[in-house]
């Protein structure tokens, strides 16, 4: 935890190596509004060894699950997750792009049924990771810029 500029937390989750400038989007995707009551610290454009700049988010008193965290993989593909208990990192993992993105991003095809008034969430399926190919399960369109259509 030495590399973090902001003070350590006792229990909770530290999301490190977030693409610089994306921390607020990360919070939005995770559904963290600040009204939940727990302490959230955000550091943006911090200098880092690996990248020139990065963002860091620390959430005190809440351990995020991998499924929740993986939602941020599209905008922060290099993020790492540290689960902290009693000031120690007890678990550390990298975000992974999930197999299915449900309700995370809209289909880029404006004429797609998922963009009309229907009682469904957009569902995008990851068909390959390298290169990244993501397809709408409704209209079948392969998405070119999913990160621009985040909900």
């Amino acid at each position: 935890m030495k590399e973090l500029k902001i003070t350590p937390i006792k229990d909770g989750t530290v999301i490190d190596h977030i693409t610089a400038g994306s921390a607020l989007k990360v919070l939005r995707i995770l559904g963290i509004t600040g009204e939940e009551g727990y302490t959230v610290s955000v550091a943006m454009n911090v200098t880092s060894k690996k990248e020139s700049l990065k963002d860091v988010v620390k959430i005190e008193g809440r351990e995020l699950k991998p499924e929740e965290i993986n939602k941020i993989s599209l905008i922060a593909p290099r993020a790492t997750i540290n689960i902290i208990r009693d000031y120690n990192v007890v678990k550390k993992y990298r975000v992974q792009i999930p197999d299915v993105l449900e309700g995370i991003a809209k289909c880029e095809n404006p004429n797609c049924i998922s963009n009309q008034r229907e009682p469904i969430q957009p569902v995008l399926k990851v068909i390959s990771r390298n290169p990244l190919r993501i397809k709408c399960v409704y209209c079948g369109r392969v998405q070119s810029q999913v990160e621009k259509n985040l909900i």
């Binding site: 289909c107 797609c112 049924i113 998922s114 009309q116 229907e118 709408c136 409704y138 209209c139």
Partner: peptide, 29 residues
Amino acid sequence: ETLADTVRMAEAYADVIVLRHPNEGAAAL
């Protein structure tokens, strides 16, 4: 009406549905 509601109505009256629709992905929905 939503398409979702229309097909739920239609399935009550029929054994099979054929759908023509202006939006891509409508049949999957």
